[in-house]
C-alpha cells in the first residue's frame, strides 16, 4: 500500500508520535556527519541522502549494554531491566534494515536472545529509500536494492517536495496509514528501476570452501591494521564479548579482526595472523552464515569499504576470489 505524504505530514505525525514513542532517526552533527540518535523534536531529523556513519544496528544490538547484575540482596542475580517503551525508527536505509532481518535469524532462533528480540518487538522501522547510492554500495549483489523492504515496517521514498510511503506491515498501516493521501496508479514508484542506481556489481560464489587454503588471504589481508572499524560499522557483524564490572555484566561489541578475539588463556591463538582473521570475516559472511541460514551475512552497505583506513574492499575481494 503506497500513499503520498508531504514533509509537513511527516513532521506532524512524528510530533504526535513523540508523545508515546521514542523516535530514532538520522541527525546531522556539525563536523561529525550523520548519526542515528533519539530525536526530541521532529524538526531535528535529517532526511537527506547522505548515509549515517554507524548503522541502525546500534539501537537493537547496542555497542555495550548491561545484561545482568547482583540483586539488592547481594546474593541472587537478576537481568537488567529492559525498556518496553514503544519506539519508531525513521530513515534507516534498506540495507541496514535487511541487516536486522539477518540478525533476526541469529538472535531470534535456537537460544533466543530476548534483549535483542525486545528491542525489535518494541520498534517500528520506517526506512528511507536510497536515491543516491555511492561508489561503495553493492546491495543489489546481496539480494537487496535501494527500495528493498526486508526488515522494515514501512519505507519512504523522496518524491518531489514530499515522500511516497509504502506501508508493509499491519503495524505500520495501523500507525501511519492515516497520513497523506491515496496515490494514483501513475504516481507509483518503479522500484525495479531503482536497482540500476547501484553501480557496483559483484559475483558471490555459492561456497568459498575451495579457496580456504589459498595464499590469496595473505595477500588481501596484508594492508589490514586490525583496527576493527569494519566490524563495528557493519550492520550485520554481531560478535560480542561479555565483560564484568564489579557486580554487573555487560555485553559489548567485539570483532574477529582483533588479535585477542580468539586468544586463549593458554596463549594459543587459532587465528594468530591477519590472514586467518580477515579470512574468518569473509568466510563468516559469504560462506558459513550461508551454510547455516541460507543467506550471505552482508547487505552490501559499503560501510566497511568507505571507512576502512587502508581501503580494503570486501566486495572486490569476494568478487576476485580465485574460485
Amino acid at each position: 500500500m503506497q500513499r503520498l505524504i508531504t514533509k509537513q505530514d511527516l513532521v506532524n505525525k512524528l510530533t504526535e508520535l513523540l508523545k508515546d514513542f521514542e523516535v530514532v532517526g538520522p541527525k546531522e552533527l556539525s563536523n561529525k556527519g550523520i548519526f542515528y540518535q533519539v530525536i526530541e523534536d521532529a524538526k531535528e531529523l535529517y532526511l537527506g541522502q547522505d548515509f549515517a556513519i554507524e548503522p541502525i544496528k546500534k539501537f537493537f544490538l547496542e555497542p555495550s549494554s548491561w545484561i545482568l547484575r547482583h540483586a539488592k540482596d547481594d546474593v541472587s542475580l537478576e537481568s537488567f531491566p529492559q525498556s518496553d517503551k514503544k519506539r519508531i525508527v525513521i530513515g534507516a536505509r534498506p540495507c541496514e534494515a535487511k541487516g536486522l532481518a539477518l540478525l533476526d535469524k541469529l538472535f531470534d532462533s535456537e537460544y533466543k536472545d530476548d534483549f535483542y528480540i525486545n528491542n525489535r518487538k518494541r520498534t517500528i522501522v520506517v526506512g528511507l529509500a536510497c536515491a543516491k547510492p555511492d561508489m561503495s554500495c553493492f546491495c543489489t549483489s546481496m539480494q537487496g536494492s535501494p527500495a528493498e523492504t526486508s526488515g522494515m515496517d514501512a519505507l519512504i521514498f523522496e518524491s518531489g517536495d514530499g515522500f511516497i510511503i509504502e506501508l508493509v506491515t499491519d503495524k505500520a498501516k495501523h500507525i501511519l496509514g492515516s497520513i497523506g493521501e491515496d496515490i494514483k496508479e501513475d504516481q507509483k514508484l518503479n522500484k525495479d528501476k531503482m536497482k540500476a542506481l547501484v553501480k557496483k556489481v559483484i559475483k558471490t560464489p555459492e561456497s568459498l570452501d575451495k579457496v580456504f587454503e589459498s595464499d590469496y588471504w595473505d595477500e588481501v589481508s596484508r594492508p589490514c591494521i586490525s583496527c576493527g572499524v569494519c566490524t563495528f560499522l557493519c550492520p550485520t557483524c554481531h560478535c560480542f564479548d561479555l565483560v564484568d564490572e564489579e557486580k554487573k555484566r555487560m555485553r559489548c561489541y567485539d570483532g574477529c579482526s582483533f588479535p585477542d578475539f580468539t586468544l586463549e588463556a593458554s596463549g594459543v591463538n587459532p587465528r594468530p595472523t591477519k590472514k586467518e582473521r580477515y579470512r574468518q570475516r569473509v568466510f563468516h559472511k559469504f560462506d558459513y552464515f550461508k551454510k547455516n541460514f541460507g543467506e550471505n551475512l552482508c547487505v552490501g552497505c559499503g560501510r566497511c569499504i568507505r571507512h576502512c583506513p587502508v581501503k580494503i574492499d570486501i566486495a572486490d575481494i569476494v568478487d576476485k576470489a580465485p574460485i
Binding site: 538472535f107 554481531h238 560480542f240 561479555l242 580468539t262 586463549e264 574468518q280
Partner: peptide, 24 residues
Amino acid sequence: LEMKMKCGLGKCGRCNIGNLYICK
C-alpha cells in the same frame, strides 16, 4: 575440542570451525 568461548550459545562468534560452533 576447545576454543575460547564466551556465550556458549553460538552467537558471540568466536569458537567456530568452518560453519560449526564448538559450543553448540
